[in-house]
């Protein structure tokens, strides 16, 4: 069909830019930072090679595993929060009238706001004395439920997860709406003729047709929430007493507050490894259902 040299030329033109960017901005930094993980380095002056010590310290650090657990809480909250909410809203917002478009936009809106502002606003909402949540609880007589939401280690990780969920429902909602509109009209009509309406239609027709999309969204959701950093960083900085530390803030704090570049790099490498493992597991689990 086409000569091989011409194909090679085409490949170079189409793929080379992407591959170059990929290696420079993704691959090389990964290897570079895992290499720094073998050094004791304060960022200034000379680095000393110390073998696997940093990596060992990471694996043995209880804070690292606590951070990992906190990351899993965010992943869990995102998957269990964002996906059902987005799916539910998508089922309700299938029409495209003015009103529904307004609600859709409202749900999408949080995405356009910068994280610094997200952090500050939710700081307001969670404030123990002035905050909306405690004010509401007090007004309905649930005084005993009021808390310092971001300071109390028993609840603060869940409190931090709420703005993250809120922040990113929008894009998933849009993906789901698109998927529903993609369900061929004949199927729905056939279902109607069979008398399938309401819940039955939902369970037997709509959801099975969307399973593929739901899977993709779950994967996106997992990888997205593994990357969570900004929100936690601005709301708590990982504190108090490292109770809301997640992997990325743990890495950041060790690198930029404690100036342990080597140790921070070792954490980075571990984060990458853990992320890949998690994604792999979720891929395998979902593939089996096919």
């Amino acid at each position: 069909m086409q000569s091989s040299s011409k194909l090679r030329g085409l490949l170079v033109i189409t793929l080379l830019p992407a591959l170059l960017l990929y290696s420079f901005f993704v691959i090389i930094p990964i290897f570079w930072s895992s290499y720094y993980g073998f050094f004791e380095w304060s960022g200034l002056g000379d680095a000393t090679f110390i073998g696997f010590q940093n990596y060992l310290e990471v694996v043995q650090s209880p804070i690292f595993w606590r951070s990992f657990k906190n990351n899993l809480i965010i992943v869990g909250a995102s998957v269990l929060g964002q996906v059902p909410i987005a799916l539910g809203l998508a089922l309700l917002l299938r029409k495209s009238n003015m009103f529904q478009r307004f609600v859709r936009s409202a749900v999408f809106l949080p995405m356009v706001i910068s994280t610094v502002v997200v952090g500050l606003i939710w700081g307001y909402i969670f404030d123990p004395e002035l905050g909306v949540i405690n004010a509401v609880l007090r007004s309905v007589g649930l005084e005993s439920w009021t808390r310092a939401w971001l300071a109390d280690p028993e609840v603060n990780m869940y409190a931090v997860a709420v703005p993250i969920i809120w922040n990113y429902i929008g894009p998933y909602l849009i993906i789901f709406i698109a998927a529903i509109q993609n369900i061929p009209g004949e199927i729905e009509e056939a279902a109607l003729l069979d008398g399938a309406t309401g819940w039955r239609k939902l369970v037997y027709i709509i959801l099975p047709n969307m399973w593929g999309t739901i899977k993709v969204v779950i994967i996106l959701c997992i990888s997205g929430s593994l990357k969570a950093f900004d929100q936690v960083f601005v709301m708590t900085g990982g504190g108090p007493a490292q109770s809301t530390e997640i992997l990325a803030t743990y890495m950041y704090n060790n690198t930029f507050l404690v100036y342990r570049y080597g140790f921070g790099s070792a954490i980075s490498t571990m984060i990458i490894i853990l992320s890949l493992i998690l994604i792999l597991i979720s891929q395998v689990l979902m593939r089996r259902k096919d």
Partner: peptide, 12 residues
């Protein structure tokens, strides 16, 4: 690459 948190390689 999609799964790798970009912030982790910031120093490198």
């Amino acid at each position: 690459a999609m799964m790798i948190p970009q912030d982790t390689t910031i120093v490198a």
